[in-house]
């Protein structure tokens, strides 16, 4: 039996973490971790080896761009979707250059999140 895709959710908002988890249920993922702190995100990433990560940028202790760089250094096959309120092109471009597979700007509807996620996984 094929193992389920492992998801790590990183966002400093509890509401957003819950919304992401609920909206992505239909993808039959295994949510292996969830945190609101950039530093903890790196520890979870190292220990839980997720296949997919949703990653916020504005977070306490360590910002999402730094977290993204570190994650890509550890495993560049991981699929990372940045989900952030930062709507400027430079930040979006930077995230994609570092290795993010997708960049979704908040606020998002469940339809937009699911569509972007499906595109990233190549399941649409």
């Amino acid at each position: 039996m094929r193992a389920r895709t492992k998801l790590l959710i990183v966002d400093d908002s509890l509401t957003i973490r819950q919304a992401i988890e609920r909206n992505l249920k239909e993808f039959s993922l295994e949510v292996v971790g969830s945190t609101g702190n950039g530093k903890t995100a790196l520890e979870l990433f190292r220990n839980l080896e997720p296949d997919v990560v949703t990653l916020d940028i504005t977070m306490p202790e360590l910002d999402g761009i730094t977290v993204l760089e570190e994650m890509m250094k550890m495993r560049n096959d991981v699929k990372i979707m940045v989900i952030t309120a930062l709507k400027d092109k430079a930040t979006g471009l930077r995230a994609i250059q570092i290795g993010a597979k997708s960049y979704l700007v908040k606020p998002f509807t469940s339809e937009k999140l699911k569509a972007a996620f499906a595109r990233m996984l190549g399941t649409n």
Binding site: S13, A85, K87, D88, T91, K106
Partner: peptide, 13 residues
């Protein structure tokens, strides 16, 4: 956070 972050579309990074 979202309202403030979105205005970076106008102000930049």
């Amino acid at each position: 956070n979202t309202i403030s972050g979105n205005v970076r579309e106008a102000y930049g990074s």
